[in-house]
Design a protein around this nucleic acid. Structure first.
Ligand SMILES: [Mn+2]
Ligand SMILES: [Mn+2]
Ligand SMILES: [Zn+2]
Ligand SMILES: [Zn+2]
Lengths: 157, 157
DNA sequence: AGGGCTGCGAGACTGGTTCTCATCTAGACT
DNA sequence: AGTCTAGATGAGAACCAGTCTCGCAGCCCT
């Protein structure tokens, strides 16, 4: 018995995300546009965060070049709509990745030697952050956690 | 009975820090220099993190102008020696503050509206980070936690 | 099909940070 | 004290991620 194409399975979260994103954009009153579609499609295909530069390069290499301004515009819009997560990894560089529809999210390890990033998640860390946020005078609505160090490759010499 | 000047009291952590810093620099083989001293003295007098720009401005206003390059050089050196902590607050801006000699440290809230920062500390957050770090393949040696939101002033319109 | 408003992109611009290089100076050695 | 030299300093150029500007393109509604 082969799976039905129309079943709303959770086997393809990236497809789910892409459809959900396009629907959300449409609901928010945005028209369709080539640049936006290209960026969304690219982000949907990634498992972890990309820089704006990487997005620009990959689109160009893929034959669908997009203006720099559009890349940033789309990323800003998607971030506002909470469809992507913006991650500041230091040195003035930001990375972007899709937010999981189920609200899950992860944080990152950055290798300060080779620049590799690796995701991790930890419920008790999230819990600790939530508790701190509650007792502060700020209205906290986002948190960045970045662990810096050496990846397994770079550690051994 | 007045306190002895030579007693190594813990009543003036900033003085302790300044002396410790100058000693560490000397031990590491660095000569004395006016720019470095000026930056160290300024950092010693602060309770929370400053941007490079703020450091530059305050030194100029204080009649001890220092070259921009020197400010960054000193901050980089002190960061390498773990004498100051570099904090990335987003938008490509970094802030710097002295590391407490006792190893204590705090993290920051950033108001995304007006840029104000406010320190906070939380042992259970530190504990959570430590536990995560232990189970990962990376050799974690630093962590950044920045909470973004609206400060109490900006929250009420 | 027409018209208006949104989306788009080339390129100028910004601002924090880094680089370059000529000059200065701490401090070691005579 | 005078000399010497490597480290320290500072003015300004360069760099670069990110933002702005503005004229053109194309989506969508009638
Ligand atoms: Mn989290
Ligand atoms: Mn901490
Ligand atoms: Zn690495
Ligand atoms: Zn504020």
């Amino acid at each position: 018995m082969e799976p039905h194409a129309h079943s709303h399975s959770h086997l393809h979260p990236s497809l789910d995300w892409q459809q959900h994103t396009l629907a959300t954009l449409s609901d928010a009153g945005h028209r369709k546009g080539g640049a936006r579609n290209a960026v969304v499609e690219l982000l949907a295909a990634q498992d972890c965060a990309l820089t704006a530069q990487e997005i620009d390069d990959r689109l160009r290499d893929g034959g669908r070049a997009v203006g720099r301004a559009s890349v940033y515009r789309v990323l800003e819009l998607l971030t506002e709509l909470r469809l992507v997560q913006k991650i500041e990894v230091g040195q003035g560089i930001a990375r972007y990745e899709r937010h999981q529809p189920d609200g899950d999210h992860h944080h990152h390890l950055v290798c300060d030697n080779c620049g590799t990033i690796e995701p991790f998640e930890d419920p008790s860390l999230e819990e600790a952050i939530e508790q701190v946020s509650r007792r502060l005078s700020f209205a906290v609505d986002e948190h960045d956690v970045v662990l810096h160090g050496a990846c397994s490759d770079c550690r051994e010499q």
